[in-house]
Design a protein around this nucleic acid. Structure first.
Ligand SMILES: [Mn+2]
Ligand SMILES: [Mn+2]
Ligand SMILES: [Mn+2]
Ligand SMILES: [Mn+2]
Lengths: 219, 219
DNA sequence: ATCTTTTTTTAGATTTGTCTAAAATAAAAT
DNA sequence: ATTTTATTTTAGACAAATCTAAAAAAAGAT
C-alpha cells in the first residue's frame, strides 16, 4: 500500500485529531491542512476506497487499524527528520517543521531505517513528541498539560503542542525549552494565566492559550 | 523562480545531454526520462515560457544561462544527497540513485547549505561526479574515458558514466571501484575489448560497452 | 525529385488534486 | 415545531502532468 504525499498529509492530520477528539469532522481537517471542506470530502472518499478509514457521510470519520498504522509511519518519518535537522544539521527547533513536512514523503524504507540507526534510535523529537518505532509503537511519556500541573512541584518541559513559528519564537523569548525546569507559582482565575519559574531562575507570565501548548512531567 | 519536481527532472536531463551533444533532441530526453516524446514537447513549451531554454519547434533546443544555473543546483542537490547516503548512512554506491532522485526535489536553501557543510563541502559524489558549489561552479577533474586511456600507464578510476544498477553490480563483481588503481594491458581490435589490471593484482576483461562508462585519470 | 521512414508536434483524453458555488443535511435558536 | 445557521456534500470547473493516436515536418533512401 503506497500513498501519495497528499494522502500522507491527510492521514497524519486525521490521526492527530482523532487522538484528541475520537471522531473527526471535515472542517477540523480542512482547518489543519488549510484547504477547503470540499477537498477534504474528496479525499475521504478516496481513503475509504483504499480501506484506511471508517466514514459515512455527514456522520464523521476515523482511521481504521491499517490507516493508523500508516499514519504512525508518516509521524515516524516526520519526527526522525526533525531530529536529524536539529541534532545533525544544527537547525533551530522552530525552523524544522516545514522542511520535515517535505522530507516525510520520501519513499524508502531503507532510508528511514538507516536514518533511525544513525540518530541512535531516538525516542523523542526536538519538540518533545514521541517517535514511533519501526513497528509503530510510541514510547510512553507521563506528561501532562501545563494547565493541569500542580502548584509548587518541580517539573520538566517535555513537549510543545504546536510547531507554529509564532508559538516557538514566543517560547524562545521566554527561555522555555524542551528539558527546562519549571514550577507553577500562581494561577490567576481572571484569565487562567500563570506565573511560573523557569530553571529555578527567571519568572514568566504565561497565558492560558500558551499553557495549553506546553506539556510537562513531574520530576 | 521555483520549479516543480517534474521541471527539475527535465532541466537536469537536458543539461546532462547538452554537455555531451550541444543541441538536444526530443527523443533523447524522452529516452532518459522514460516518457513519451509528446510529454517532452509539452514540457518544452512550459520551460520556454519560463525562459529557461532556447527552443524552436522541430529545430532542437538547449538551456540558456538561467536554465543551466538551475540545472546545476539540481545536480548539486542530487550529488550532495548521494554523498550523504553513502558516507553517513552507509548505503552502497549502487543503492543511492533512486532515493537521491526524490531527495533532490526538497525545497530548502538552508537544508542544502547545512548538508554541504556537514559533509565537509565534498567535491565529488560517490560515483566520482563533480559536485557544483553554491555558485554553480564545478570542480575540474582531468579524467578521460577508459577507451582513450593509454597503455601501461597507472590510472585511478574517478567516475562512472551511468548509475544503472546493472552496470554498478557488474563493476562490483569485477572489483572496480571509485579510487581503484587501473592499468590497461592490452586491447583487442576484434570487439574493442580490453584486458586491464586492477589495484596491481586482479586482471579483468572489459567490454567496449563497459569501458565507455568508466572514467580514469593519470596518476 | 520522389518516396519512405523517423522524428516531432498537435489533438484530445485521463488522473490527481484542487477550487467555488449551490444543494443537502444536521445542529442551534427562537 | 419552525426557522435560522453551520456543516457537509455534490456539481462542475481548472491546472498539472501524463498518455495514445493522428498529423506535420524533417531526414534518409532510391
Ligand atoms: Mn507533509
Ligand atoms: Mn515535531
Ligand atoms: Mn528527480
Ligand atoms: Mn551520482
Amino acid at each position: 500500500m503506497s500513498l501519495t504525499s497528499s494522502e500522507e498529509n491527510y492521514i497524519k492530520a486525521i490521526f492527530q485529531l482523532q487522538v484528541k477528539d475520537g471522531m473527526v469532522s471535515t472542517n477540523e481537517v480542512a482547518a489543519v491542512l488549510q484547504t477547503s471542506a470540499a477537498s477534504v470530502t474528496d479525499m475521504l472518499k478516496k481513503l475509504k476506497t483504499k480501506k484506511l478509514l471508517v466514514y459515512e457521510k455527514y456522520k464523521g470519520f476515523k482511521l481504521n487499524g491499517e490507516g493508523r498504522k500508516l499514519a504512525l509511519m508518516v509521524l515516524r518519518k516526520h519526527r526522525l527528520w526533525e531530529t536529524f535537522l536539529v541534532k545533525i544539521l544544527h537547525f533551530n527547533w522552530d525552523e524544522v517543521h516545514e522542511v520535515a513536512e517535505q522530507l516525510e514523503h520520501i519513499q524508502s524504507q531503507q532510508l528511514i531505517d538507516h536514518l533511525d540507526d544513525f540518530l541512535g534510535n531516538p525516542a523523542f523529537d526536538p519538540h518533545g513528541d514521541p517517535i514511533p518505532d519501526a513497528t509503530g509503537k510510541m514510547p510512553f511519556q507521563s506528561q501532562m498539560n501545563l494547565n493541569k500541573f500542580p502548584f509548587q512541584i518541580n517539573g520538566e518541559v517535555t513537549a510543545v503542542g504546536s510547531q507554529s513559528p509564532d508559538i516557538l519564537s514566543l517560547l524562545e523569548h521566554k527561555k522555555i525549552t524542551i528539558g527546562a525546569r519549571i514550577k507553577v507559582l500562581q494561577r490567576f482565575a481572571f484569565d487562567n494565566s500563570f506565573e511560573i519559574q523557569i530553571n529555578n531562575k527567571e519568572q514568566a507570565h504565561i497565558s492560558a492559550q500558551l499553557a495549553e501548548q506546553i506539556y510537562v512531567k513531574k520530576l
